[in-house]
Design a protein around this nucleic acid. Structure first.
Lengths: 114, 114
DNA sequence: TTATATGCATAGATTTACTATGTATATAGT
DNA sequence: ACTATATACATAGTAAATCTATGCATATAA
Protein backbone atom coordinates (compact mmCIF):
# COMPACT_ATOMS: atom_id res chain seq x y z
CA UNK A 1 0.00 0.00 0.00
CA UNK A 2 2.35 2.71 -1.23
CA UNK A 3 4.10 4.52 1.57
CA UNK A 4 2.95 1.93 4.05
CA UNK A 5 4.63 -0.92 2.21
CA UNK A 6 7.93 0.89 1.89
CA UNK A 7 7.80 2.00 5.47
CA UNK A 8 7.01 -1.26 7.05
CA UNK A 9 9.61 -2.96 4.93
CA UNK A 10 12.16 -0.67 6.46
CA UNK A 11 11.05 -0.81 10.09
CA UNK A 12 13.58 -3.47 11.03
CA UNK A 13 16.45 -1.99 9.08
CA UNK A 14 15.83 1.44 10.62
CA UNK A 15 16.36 0.00 14.07
CA UNK A 16 19.52 -1.85 13.05
CA UNK A 17 20.97 1.21 11.34
CA UNK A 18 20.10 3.36 14.32
CA UNK A 19 22.02 1.10 16.71
CA UNK A 20 25.01 0.93 14.38
CA UNK A 21 24.95 4.72 14.07
CA UNK A 22 25.75 4.84 17.78
CA UNK A 23 28.59 2.33 17.68
CA UNK A 24 29.88 -0.78 15.95
CA UNK A 25 28.03 -3.90 17.06
CA UNK A 26 27.97 -7.63 16.34
CA UNK A 27 24.84 -9.58 15.47
CA UNK A 28 23.99 -11.12 18.77
CA UNK A 29 24.61 -7.82 20.49
CA UNK A 30 22.10 -6.12 18.22
CA UNK A 31 19.36 -8.57 19.20
CA UNK A 32 20.12 -8.12 22.91
CA UNK A 33 20.34 -4.35 22.69
CA UNK A 34 16.98 -4.12 20.93
CA UNK A 35 15.44 -6.48 23.44
CA UNK A 36 16.75 -4.45 26.37
CA UNK A 37 15.85 -1.04 24.98
CA UNK A 38 12.34 -2.17 24.10
CA UNK A 39 11.81 -3.74 27.51
CA UNK A 40 11.61 -7.23 25.97
CA UNK A 41 9.03 -6.24 23.37
CA UNK A 42 11.22 -6.47 20.29
CA UNK A 43 12.88 -9.84 19.96
CA UNK A 44 14.69 -9.74 16.66
CA UNK A 45 15.33 -13.29 15.46
CA UNK A 46 18.50 -14.55 13.75
CA UNK A 47 16.42 -15.56 10.76
CA UNK A 48 15.51 -11.91 10.35
CA UNK A 49 18.71 -10.27 11.51
CA UNK A 50 21.45 -12.00 9.54
CA UNK A 51 19.78 -11.87 6.13
CA UNK A 52 19.07 -8.20 6.85
CA UNK A 53 22.68 -7.47 7.80
CA UNK A 54 23.89 -9.21 4.67
CA UNK A 55 21.43 -7.25 2.61
CA UNK A 56 22.54 -3.97 4.20
CA UNK A 57 26.13 -4.96 3.44
CA UNK A 58 25.28 -5.63 -0.20
CA UNK A 59 23.76 -2.20 -0.67
CA UNK A 60 26.74 -0.57 1.02
CA UNK A 61 24.94 0.64 4.12
CA UNK A 62 27.19 -1.30 6.47
CA UNK A 63 30.61 -2.93 6.45
CA UNK A 64 32.00 -5.61 8.75
CA UNK A 65 35.24 -6.89 10.26
CA UNK A 66 36.27 -9.82 12.44
CA UNK A 67 37.33 -9.20 15.99
CA UNK A 68 38.88 -11.83 18.24
CA UNK A 69 38.10 -11.42 21.93
CA UNK A 70 40.62 -12.41 24.59
CA UNK A 71 38.51 -15.47 25.45
CA UNK A 72 39.18 -16.68 21.94
CA UNK A 73 35.65 -15.96 20.76
CA UNK A 74 35.24 -14.55 17.30
CA UNK A 75 32.83 -11.73 16.63
CA UNK A 76 31.76 -10.17 13.38
CA UNK A 77 31.37 -6.47 13.98
CA UNK A 78 29.17 -4.35 11.75
CA UNK A 79 29.92 -0.69 11.08
CA UNK A 80 27.62 1.83 9.45
CA UNK A 81 28.87 3.66 6.35
CA UNK A 82 28.12 7.19 5.12
CA UNK A 83 25.61 5.64 2.75
CA UNK A 84 24.05 3.88 5.72
CA UNK A 85 23.76 7.14 7.65
CA UNK A 86 21.99 8.75 4.73
CA UNK A 87 19.64 5.77 4.51
CA UNK A 88 18.90 6.04 8.22
CA UNK A 89 18.16 9.73 7.92
CA UNK A 90 15.80 9.17 5.01
CA UNK A 91 14.06 6.21 6.61
CA UNK A 92 13.63 8.12 9.84
CA UNK A 93 12.01 10.97 7.96
CA UNK A 94 9.68 8.56 6.18
CA UNK A 95 8.76 6.85 9.42
CA UNK A 96 7.83 10.16 11.03
CA UNK A 97 5.66 11.02 8.07
CA UNK A 98 3.96 7.66 8.01
CA UNK A 99 3.28 7.43 11.74
CA UNK A 100 1.90 10.95 11.71
CA UNK A 101 -0.44 10.03 8.86
CA UNK A 102 -1.53 6.84 10.60
CA UNK A 103 -2.30 8.77 13.78
CA UNK A 104 -4.39 11.29 11.91
CA UNK A 105 -6.30 8.56 10.10
CA UNK A 106 -7.03 6.35 13.07
CA UNK A 107 -7.91 9.21 15.36
CA UNK A 108 -9.99 10.61 12.53
CA UNK A 109 -12.67 13.27 12.46
CA UNK A 110 -14.22 14.11 15.79
CA UNK A 111 -17.76 13.43 14.65
CA UNK A 112 -16.85 9.79 14.30
CA UNK A 113 -16.44 9.37 18.03
CA UNK A 114 -20.16 9.39 18.69
CA UNK B 1 9.64 -9.37 15.23
CA UNK B 2 7.08 -9.81 17.97
CA UNK B 3 4.93 -6.76 18.45
CA UNK B 4 6.15 -5.31 15.18
CA UNK B 5 4.92 -8.29 13.18
CA UNK B 6 1.47 -8.24 14.67
CA UNK B 7 1.20 -4.51 14.36
CA UNK B 8 2.22 -4.19 10.81
CA UNK B 9 -0.01 -7.07 9.88
CA UNK B 10 -2.88 -5.05 11.24
CA UNK B 11 -2.02 -1.65 9.81
CA UNK B 12 -4.32 -2.04 6.83
CA UNK B 13 -7.18 -3.59 8.74
CA UNK B 14 -7.03 -0.80 11.32
CA UNK B 15 -7.63 1.77 8.60
CA UNK B 16 -10.48 -0.22 7.07
CA UNK B 17 -12.16 -0.76 10.43
CA UNK B 18 -11.73 2.89 11.29
CA UNK B 19 -13.55 4.00 8.13
CA UNK B 20 -16.34 1.49 8.67
CA UNK B 21 -16.67 2.68 12.27
CA UNK B 22 -17.71 6.05 10.85
CA UNK B 23 -20.24 4.69 8.38
CA UNK B 24 -21.06 1.75 6.12
CA UNK B 25 -18.96 1.76 2.96
CA UNK B 26 -18.44 -0.32 -0.17
CA UNK B 27 -15.07 -1.55 -1.35
CA UNK B 28 -14.29 0.98 -4.02
CA UNK B 29 -15.39 3.75 -1.71
CA UNK B 30 -12.92 2.60 0.93
CA UNK B 31 -10.02 2.84 -1.51
CA UNK B 32 -11.06 6.33 -2.60
CA UNK B 33 -11.68 7.57 0.91
CA UNK B 34 -8.25 6.39 2.07
CA UNK B 35 -6.64 7.95 -0.97
CA UNK B 36 -8.37 11.27 -0.36
CA UNK B 37 -7.76 11.42 3.38
CA UNK B 38 -4.08 10.55 2.96
CA UNK B 39 -3.63 13.12 0.20
CA UNK B 40 -2.95 10.38 -2.37
CA UNK B 41 -0.30 8.66 -0.25
CA UNK B 42 -2.26 5.53 0.59
CA UNK B 43 -3.49 3.74 -2.50
CA UNK B 44 -5.06 0.55 -1.23
CA UNK B 45 -5.23 -1.99 -4.06
CA UNK B 46 -8.11 -4.35 -4.76
CA UNK B 47 -5.77 -7.30 -4.35
CA UNK B 48 -5.22 -6.17 -0.78
CA UNK B 49 -8.65 -4.79 0.03
CA UNK B 50 -11.02 -7.56 -0.98
CA UNK B 51 -9.15 -10.47 0.61
CA UNK B 52 -8.92 -8.30 3.73
CA UNK B 53 -12.64 -7.52 3.76
CA UNK B 54 -13.43 -11.21 3.29
CA UNK B 55 -11.07 -12.08 6.09
CA UNK B 56 -12.65 -9.48 8.38
CA UNK B 57 -16.05 -10.93 7.50
CA UNK B 58 -14.87 -14.43 8.39
CA UNK B 59 -13.72 -13.39 11.84
CA UNK B 60 -16.98 -11.52 12.42
CA UNK B 61 -15.53 -8.02 12.46
CA UNK B 62 -17.72 -6.86 9.58
CA UNK B 63 -20.92 -7.86 7.82
CA UNK B 64 -22.16 -6.92 4.38
CA UNK B 65 -25.30 -6.35 2.36
CA UNK B 66 -26.13 -5.58 -1.24
CA UNK B 67 -27.50 -2.22 -2.16
CA UNK B 68 -28.89 -1.32 -5.58
CA UNK B 69 -28.46 2.31 -6.57
CA UNK B 70 -31.05 4.07 -8.71
CA UNK B 71 -28.66 3.96 -11.70
CA UNK B 72 -28.89 0.19 -11.52
CA UNK B 73 -25.41 -0.22 -10.06
CA UNK B 74 -24.90 -2.83 -7.40
CA UNK B 75 -22.80 -2.09 -4.37
CA UNK B 76 -21.70 -4.40 -1.60
CA UNK B 77 -21.77 -2.38 1.59
CA UNK B 78 -19.68 -3.40 4.57
CA UNK B 79 -20.79 -2.68 8.11
CA UNK B 80 -18.68 -2.97 11.24
CA UNK B 81 -19.92 -5.23 14.04
CA UNK B 82 -19.48 -4.92 17.80
CA UNK B 83 -16.64 -7.42 17.51
CA UNK B 84 -15.11 -5.21 14.85
CA UNK B 85 -15.32 -2.17 17.10
CA UNK B 86 -13.55 -4.03 19.85
CA UNK B 87 -10.87 -5.13 17.39
CA UNK B 88 -10.42 -1.56 16.23
CA UNK B 89 -10.07 -0.33 19.79
CA UNK B 90 -7.46 -2.96 20.59
CA UNK B 91 -5.53 -2.46 17.38
CA UNK B 92 -5.52 1.28 17.87
CA UNK B 93 -4.10 0.84 21.35
CA UNK B 94 -1.39 -1.47 20.01
CA UNK B 95 -0.53 0.94 17.23
CA UNK B 96 -0.08 3.78 19.70
CA UNK B 97 2.19 1.63 21.81
CA UNK B 98 4.24 0.46 18.87
CA UNK B 99 4.67 3.86 17.25
CA UNK B 100 5.66 5.34 20.59
CA UNK B 101 8.30 2.64 21.03
CA UNK B 102 9.60 3.12 17.50
CA UNK B 103 9.91 6.85 18.08
CA UNK B 104 11.84 6.33 21.28
CA UNK B 105 14.18 3.84 19.62
CA UNK B 106 14.92 5.78 16.47
CA UNK B 107 15.32 9.08 18.26
CA UNK B 108 17.43 7.25 20.80
CA UNK B 109 19.81 8.49 23.45
CA UNK B 110 21.00 12.05 23.05
CA UNK B 111 24.67 11.13 23.13
CA UNK B 112 24.18 9.35 19.84
CA UNK B 113 23.54 12.61 18.03
CA UNK B 114 27.17 13.62 18.10
C1' DT C 1 -17.06 3.86 -30.33
C1' DT C 2 -13.54 4.44 -27.35
C1' DA C 3 -11.65 5.73 -23.04
C1' DT C 4 -12.25 6.41 -18.27
C1' DA C 5 -14.36 5.71 -13.96
C1' DT C 6 -16.89 2.70 -11.13
C1' DG C 7 -17.42 -1.80 -8.89
C1' DC C 8 -16.54 -6.73 -7.49
C1' DA C 9 -13.20 -10.35 -7.34
C1' DT C 10 -9.28 -13.94 -7.83
C1' DA C 11 -4.60 -15.95 -9.33
C1' DG C 12 0.00 -15.68 -8.98
C1' DA C 13 4.30 -13.30 -7.64
C1' DT C 14 7.01 -10.89 -4.40
C1' DT C 15 8.64 -9.46 -0.09
C1' DT C 16 9.35 -9.92 4.77
C1' DA C 17 9.86 -12.06 8.70
C1' DC C 18 9.35 -16.24 11.11
C1' DT C 19 10.44 -21.18 12.85
C1' DA C 20 13.49 -24.68 12.84
C1' DT C 21 17.82 -26.22 12.43
C1' DG C 22 22.98 -26.60 12.17
C1' DT C 23 27.68 -25.59 13.80
C1' DA C 24 30.79 -24.21 17.45
C1' DT C 25 32.82 -22.30 21.91
C1' DA C 26 32.56 -20.69 26.89
C1' DT C 27 30.82 -21.08 31.40
C1' DA C 28 28.19 -22.61 35.35
C1' DG C 29 26.01 -26.22 37.84
C1' DT C 30 25.65 -31.08 39.37
C1' DA D 1 32.82 -35.72 33.51
C1' DC D 2 28.46 -34.38 31.95
C1' DT D 3 24.78 -31.29 31.01
C1' DA D 4 22.52 -27.04 30.45
C1' DT D 5 22.68 -22.38 29.19
C1' DA D 6 24.49 -18.44 26.98
C1' DT D 7 27.04 -16.76 23.26
C1' DA D 8 27.79 -16.37 18.20
C1' DC D 9 27.41 -17.18 13.27
C1' DA D 10 24.34 -18.72 9.55
C1' DT D 11 20.86 -21.01 6.20
C1' DA D 12 16.56 -23.67 4.65
C1' DG D 13 12.01 -23.80 4.47
C1' DT D 14 7.53 -21.74 5.73
C1' DA D 15 3.93 -18.39 6.52
C1' DA D 16 1.87 -14.01 5.96
C1' DA D 17 0.99 -9.53 3.76
C1' DT D 18 0.67 -6.95 -0.10
C1' DC D 19 1.29 -6.28 -4.75
C1' DT D 20 0.59 -6.82 -10.00
C1' DA D 21 -2.09 -8.54 -13.42
C1' DT D 22 -6.21 -9.95 -14.96
C1' DG D 23 -11.24 -10.83 -15.57
C1' DC D 24 -16.06 -9.41 -15.70
C1' DA D 25 -19.57 -5.81 -15.97
C1' DT D 26 -21.97 -1.11 -16.18
C1' DA D 27 -22.13 4.10 -16.62
C1' DT D 28 -20.52 8.25 -18.53
C1' DA D 29 -17.76 11.48 -21.10
C1' DA D 30 -15.11 12.50 -25.31
Amino acid sequence: MGINRELIKGSTSILILKLLAERDMYGYQITQELKTRSDNELQLKEGTLYPMLHSLTEVGAVEWYWYDTDEGRRRKYYKITDTGREMLCEKRREWKEFSKLMNVLIDGPEEALS
